[in-house]
């Protein structure tokens, strides 16, 4: 027990840093959202939830985050399977392709997407030159563009946890299933997929948390036209000078993030308990 205490001391610098820089301001923010004139009150929350516009922003934020997570999952799963079976140079190429874009700033990537999506952008030029459409389609400033851009930026956070789980899986398991008469589809549904679920849960938790609180990507791709919770937070603090509203929205975002983390670790535990 004493030894453990000594080792615990090593965490002290990190803990105190986080406490001062992160936890304390967060706590003050939380307190602010529950106070009116120094009194405890839920009034700010009542005001927030009774406003139809705020509700539409909350709903859009959740919907965009969920669809971003879904799109990322659909793209990431096959990628992760391919990576888990790759070796040598191919694996290196895959990993670099996953990790390198993370070093490119999110602003740059969001701008890149806006170049692709804008009225006379790359995608519209391509569609028109192929004769698929005659006039440019409005893509920038739409929710679809936002979801595609966000899924692209957050893709590594979905691929890597799934890849890690699949890589660990004993390659004899699908072979054993095959030798027991299981078709490729049966093997996938009954062996590979259930065993990869912890990675899927982790990846979804990462991407959903990131997508629910993203600020730069929606600012650049959809702009002010369609607000999300984090854009609304920034607006309340910077333009409306309504700190109480900003604190309230931040707290709501925090609650969403914490429930995603707790929910996913509960789910991962439940999945892990069986194996």
């Amino acid at each position: 027990m004493r030894r453990l205490d000594h080792i615990g001391l090593l965490a002290l610098p990190g803990l105190s840093f986080l406490a001062v820089i992160f936890a304390l301001p967060l706590l003050l923010l939380l307190l602010k959202s529950f106070q009116i004139d120094g009194q405890f009150s839920l009034e700010e929350y009542r005001l927030f939830f009774s406003d139809e516009y705020n509700m539409s922003v909350l709903w859009r934020t959740l919907r965009v985050a969920a669809l971003t997570t879904l799109l990322a999952l659909v793209i990431a799963y096959p990628t992760a399977i391919a990576m888990s079976r790759a070796n040598g140079i191919w694996l290196s190429i895959f990993l670099v392709a996953m990790v390198l874009p993370m070093s490119v700033g999110v602003v740059v990537k969001a701008f890149a997407w806006s170049i692709i999506f804008r009225t006379r952008g790359v995608l519209n030029d391509l569609l028109m030159s192929l004769g698929i459409t005659e006039a440019p389609i409005r893509m920038l400033f739409t929710e679809t563009a936002l979801i595609i851009g966000a899924a692209n930026v957050f893709l590594p956070f979905m691929v890597l946890p799934i890849y890690a789980v699949l890589r660990q899986m004993d390659s004899r398991l699908p072979e054993a299933a095959a030798s027991l008469g299981a078709t490729p589809v049966f093997r996938f549904v009954n062996v590979t997929l259930p065993l990869s679920l912890p990675g899927v849960v982790a990846g979804c938790a990462f991407v959903f948390s990131l997508a629910v609180s993203m600020y730069v990507i929606p600012s650049l791709i959809v702009g002010e036209r369609q607000q999300t919770l984090s854009m609304l937070t920034a607006r309340s603090f910077l333009f409306l000078r309504n700190e109480a509203l900003g604190a309230t929205i931040s707290s709501i975002l925090l609650i969403i993030a914490v429930s995603v983390v707790l929910g996913s670790s509960w789910l991962a535990n439940r999945l892990g308990a069986r194996s």
């Binding site: 004899r172 072979e175 054993a176 299933a177 030798s179 027991l180 299981a182 259930p194």
Partner: peptide, 29 residues
């Protein structure tokens, strides 16, 4: 293909399905 040969393999590591119970493992085939 392997799954249509009806030839079964017992692996060195046994390759039991870790997410299934004993009975579910036996029922798999």
């Amino acid at each position: 293909p392997a799954h249509r040969r009806n030839i079964s393999v017992v692996f060195q590591s046994y390759a039991l399905f870790p997410h299934l119970t004993v009975a579910e493992n036996v029922a798999f085939g």
